[in-house]
Simulated assay, not measured.
Amino acid sequence: MSDTTILHRLAETIESRKSAAADSSYVAKLFHGGQDKILKKIAEESAETLMASKDGDLDQVIYETADLWFHCLILLAHHGLKPDDVLRELERREGISGITEKASRTKE
């Protein structure tokens, strides 16, 4: 079973493509398209993940979730964030009831 190192390797590859020419890679093309292009892909991958789940196709759930996570890594890089930023937040929440955690968030 793999661990989080794959997230770090993917994040490094994604980061290396931020300043690459748009025609050099898919990731570079997304970065050149800006946040709206990245968000559109996340919405698309989210919908595909939902449909795979609704259809009960477990192989497709895995495949589409991998696509979704990958595009979320691109969004994190767009904002100068890393997988560790999200992992720290998940670690902070570990062992805390979801109801308690949500109630503790600052209200605007």
Results as ranks from 00 to 15, higher is better:
M1W: 04
S2K: 11
D3T: 06
H8E: 09
H8I: 00
E12M: 02
T13M: 11
I14Y: 13
K18E: 08
S19Q: 12
A20R: 10
S24M: 03
S25Y: 02
A28M: 12
F31P: 03
H32R: 10
H32N: 13
G33Q: 00
D36K: 10
D36H: 03
K37A: 11
K37T: 01
K37D: 04
K37N: 05
I38M: 04
L39R: 13
K41C: 09
K41Q: 15
E45K: 02
E45D: 06
S46R: 07
E48Q: 11
T49A: 14
M51Q: 14
A52L: 09
S53A: 14
K54A: 10
D55I: 01
D55L: 09
V61L: 05
I62Y: 07
I62H: 07
A66H: 03
A66S: 12
A66V: 11
D67N: 15
D67I: 00
D67L: 02
D67M: 04
L68I: 06
F70L: 09
H71N: 05
C72V: 08
I74S: 06
I74C: 09
A77F: 01
A77D: 03
G80H: 11
L81P: 03
D84V: 09
D84L: 07
D85C: 01
V86C: 08
R88F: 00
E89V: 09
L90V: 07
E91Q: 15
E91L: 11
R93D: 05
R93S: 05
E94N: 14
I96W: 10
I99E: 15
T100N: 09
T100L: 12
K102H: 13
S104L: 11
T106Q: 07
E108R: 08
E108H: 12
